[in-house]
Design a protein around this nucleic acid. Structure first.
Lengths: 223, 223
DNA sequence: CGGCAAAAACCGACAAGCTTGTTTGTTATT
DNA sequence: AATAACAAACAAGCTTGTCGGTTTTTGCCG
């Protein structure tokens, strides 16, 4: 990961989780917060946003609800921090993927899509997707989720263009390809529990073929 | 729509909604139930499953909660009926689409996908999708949703094979193509509020191209 | 160095509001 | 008169956020 990537990542670093050389209490606080955020991710993944209660998160984190509310005063605070945390982790994985792609596998036109798909099979993305879906019909959640999601998308786009300048020549075509890949892969992820793992890879391969065709100009955009 | 299709549709007809020549009270009851189910669909589409309360549905239907609980004793009863109702309406649209396809547009390889996509932009499908997504993380809902969803899928598959017998020669390939189309289109539908209508059509077109390639055998399945 | 007060982490109990389902009552139809 | 449609009030449970109290850590001052 180059210097610029590291700086980009640093800009997304969540607040209140960066105390490394601080006092004993500071480190304990950070540790507890991470435990809470991880429990919230598990809760979102396993029970969905609608059934993710503060009670359940505290139980899964192994602490009392009172202690949790000491670190995150309201549920909104907690969810907001969960979003920041998952965004940060996604960006970490994404930048590492980009780096690997730049180094070697760039020849293989499928590699980018497969890395995207793999990154969507993580716990963090499952939680992120639950939030994204819930935000579609929950204005209060949308208000805190959408700005952060948009910021992620913009950063992702900027980093891709920086890594693959040729895409900058055709920004509209690229945006379309990216939208298609993200949407189709999301559809695969949502339905993944009902298919065997091999089939998922095949379906992911179809997405990759479409993107490759777009890249070569073989796939014309209808009027 | 041919006789067999009509019989298939009749098998999915929801209970308690078929009183046509009955008494005045019967017809009024059916009318009220449909009002409730339509309100529930609106509620699911606008507020999502997690925020769909009996209170809100009754308000949107314009009746008291007591009256609603007279027709649907528990929320589970109501949701179960909503599933039956949306499944029936989806099958109605699907069979009509199949019929139109058999008649004329079969030459156009895109037509099938576009009809699928159009059918996913209805209120009924929005509600169905909300239920499908919620069922992934809600065991109680999954228990009543999954059997009905599976029945719809099986019926859909049987009707397609009946209309296009050539698919029966390669059932695995067809199942894969259908899974891909459904998943990718679902991904598009979930994200549709953030794209202009034209782009949606273009992205849908990409799905159609993939299916057409599969059909021609141009798209090989990786090992 | 030792003690001590402030601060922080943590816990349990409580109140207010929402959701569900029951129960009782009223009006209209059969 | 019996039944069905509809309405309103009530009880029980869950969820959130506040409040008071306990334990541990920290910093300060004699």
């Amino acid at each position: 990961m180059d210097d610029i990537s590291l700086r980009v990542l640093a800009q997304l670093e969540p607040e209140g989780l960066d105390a490394e050389g601080q006092s004993w209490q500071q480190r304990k606080s950070v540790q507890t917060r991470i435990t809470i955020l991880e429990a919230a991710i598990d809760c979102l993944q396993q029970h969905g946003y609608g059934r993710t209660t503060t009670q359940l998160i505290a139980e899964m984190a192994g602490i009392s609800r009172g202690a949790m509310l000491h670190h995150y005063a309201t549920k909104q605070d907690l969810i907001s921090s969960v979003i920041d945390y998952t965004v940060y982790k996604r960006m970490e994985v994404f930048l590492e993927g980009i780096r690997a792609l730049k180094d070697s596998a760039r020849i293989d036109e499928m590699a980018g899509i497969e890395i995207s798909f793999q990154s969507m099979l993580t716990r963090e993305f499952a939680a992120y997707l639950e939030l994204a879906i819930a935000a579609r019909t929950d204005p209060d959640l949308a208000e805190i989720f959408l700005p952060k999601a948009r910021r992620f998308d913009q950063t992702e786009l900027a980093e891709i263009i920086r890594a693959f300048p040729e895409w900058a020549e055709n920004p509209d075509g690229y945006a379309l390809a990216m939208d298609y890949a993200n949407a189709a892969l999301e559809g695969l992820v949502i339905n993944r529990d009902i298919w065997p793992e091999r089939d998922q890879r095949v379906l992911c391969h179809f997405v990759g073929k479409t993107i490759a065709m777009l890249r070569r100009g073989d796939l014309t955009v209808p009027a």
